[in-house]
């Protein structure tokens, strides 16, 4: 079955894009990892969501891109009904303070990762934010117990009665 949740990675430098995807490859069996090298290409993926019956749970986005920049893309996503709930992360070496503040205030930025990043940190952040997303937006968290934070997912089930006796 096609995964319900997409992880979108936006990065224009091919080597860097590969490195990000490699560092989150443990999630590939449970999530669709989609790649885009420009904001415009990312928009195409977003616009195709209703047809694909998928939702973007997490975006890992570079700031400096040819054409529209990463922060503007994130703000646009925040204003779009389809991607408002997407957990948004900036991976960049070049976003200034003003740009970053803008992303926090206007795009509800969840995390800022400075390049070069620590692969474990990237994987931990991905796990944490996807767990948040599943808890808030997915009816049945069981398929994600293996890969995400099982303790938090189980505690969510305990507190909210997601699954009941039958």
């Amino acid at each position: 079955m096609k995964p319900e949740i997409v992880i979108l990675v936006v990065e224009d430098e091919p080597e860097v894009l590969d490195a990000i995807v490699r560092d989150i490859n443990e999630f590939e069996d449970f999530f669709d990892v989609e790649m885009a090298d420009t904001a415009e290409e990312a928009e195409e993926i977003i616009n195709g969501l209703p047809d694909r019956e998928q939702q973007i749970g997490l975006i890992l986005c570079d700031h400096v891109l040819p054409g529209k920049n990463g922060v503007d893309l994130l703000i646009e996503m925040q204003e779009n009904e389809l991607t408002r709930n997407t957990r948004k992360v900036l991976i960049t070496g070049q976003a200034g303070l003003d740009e970053t503040v803008k992303a926090v205030n206007k795009a509800d930025l969840k995390h800022y990762i400075a390049k070069p990043w620590d692969p474990n940190e990237l994987s931990d952040i991905t796990r944490k934010l996807l767990t948040d997303y599943v808890i808030d937006h997915i009816k049945n968290p069981l398929p994600y117990m293996q890969i995400l934070d099982a303790e938090r997912l189980a505690d969510h089930m305990r507190q909210h009665g997601t699954i009941t006796d039958s």
């Binding site: 303790e151 189980a154 089930m157 305990r158 699954i163």
Partner: peptide, 16 residues
Amino acid sequence: MSNTATTAMMITVLIP
């Protein structure tokens, strides 16, 4: 308690 709720709670104990 419900069998399911108890299991969910015990899983949070088990994972660590």
